[in-house]
Design a protein around this nucleic acid. Sequence first.
DNA 1: GCTCATATTGACTGACCAGTCAGTTTACAT
DNA 2: ATGTAAACTGACTGGTCAGTCAATATGAGC
Lengths: 191, 191
Amino acid sequence: MREPSPDKQEAILETALTLFTERGFAGTPTSLISKEAGVATGTLFFYFKTKEELIDTLYRRVKSEAAKEMSRGIDKEKSAKAKLRRLGRNAAGWGMKNPAKLKFMEQFAHSPFVSTSAHEEGMSHFLFLEDLVRQGIQDGEIRNVEPSGLFCLMASALSGMIAHALSTGDRKERERIIEDGLDFIWFGMKA
Amino acid sequence: MREPSPDKQEAILETALTLFTERGFAGTPTSLISKEAGVATGTLFFYFKTKEELIDTLYRRVKSEAAKEMSRGIDKEKSAKAKLRRLGRNAAGWGMKNPAKLKFMEQFAHSPFVSTSAHEEGMSHFLFLEDLVRQGIQDGEIRNVEPSGLFCLMASALSGMIAHALSTGDRKERERIIEDGLDFIWFGMKA
DNA sequence: GCTCATATTGACTGACCAGTCAGTTTACAT
DNA sequence: ATGTAAACTGACTGGTCAGTCAATATGAGC
């Protein structure tokens, strides 16, 4: 018997990530992915039944990783304000370190190539964030408006902020953009 | 001689808009577009040299229309706060009335199918917004941080807000989402 | 009505590509 | 060593589709 090689699957996923962000889903033939990943066409289809399954897996992974990185250490903070700020900084840090994954998320967030179920699963990882908002409202730290609305506003502002921070090469300026962005979000939410 | 028919070109663009948002760029064959638009394949390629030229034209048009609608009547307002609120309401109103166009913009904002030049032209229509922010800072109404950063934050929050408002059918709730969103944005910006 | 330029048609083509499969290699068990 | 189950290979195929083009329809000017 032989064991499936996590290395090969990983190589395929990583290559696909880069190529999909650079050339789009339809613009990248599976043959190119397998070639760049150093495996045969057949191998790609051994690990992923279809091209769609490949992008779906990729989407789930990236979303899940992003959510995990963002939530890192927020229970250590006690106030909603501090939690939110920590979360924002985590998000920014991850985005700076993984621009390809970030671009991938943006590019395929509304894409019909990614299945509805993958989109839903991706969303689900960020639900803890809505709870965080809800708790902040209960504690009187956050303005009492519909939490799901605040969550949307915060998430999109965050994403816009990171994209903008990435557009400059200067580290100092990036930090300034991030701090300003976090201020914007906090002032928008606080009671 | 015969004149090119604006009607046919319009029908093609309108059909393409719907199909692209529903099925993606690569997912919609030109043959389907022409069929649904009620013209022959050849006619589509008479009005648009390539499929890319078609989506580019569409992108430019939609972005330009969106910008125009958003800026409607903002010179009537005197304060930055009032201008911003008017702009936000315009944007929301347009988005509610043109969900397909909005979805198209979101879906293709980061798409490699749309040429760089079309992306740039699309962006350029929203530059007046950055000036508005700059003016507000000068007048002491808006917090003194880099205007381009504020612009990004505002734009992404706005877009997130509209998408969220569209997800409910109830008119009253929509209005609440919009008012809450505009508050969020304003509190985030004001001095 | 006739002419002519151009709009319109749709069958066709050449290229491309997702996914298959018959065969080959690998590594584990006995 | 040998058997064997599963990983791996890559040439191949069936289908699809962007874009072409020779033929035809249309309408403006005479």
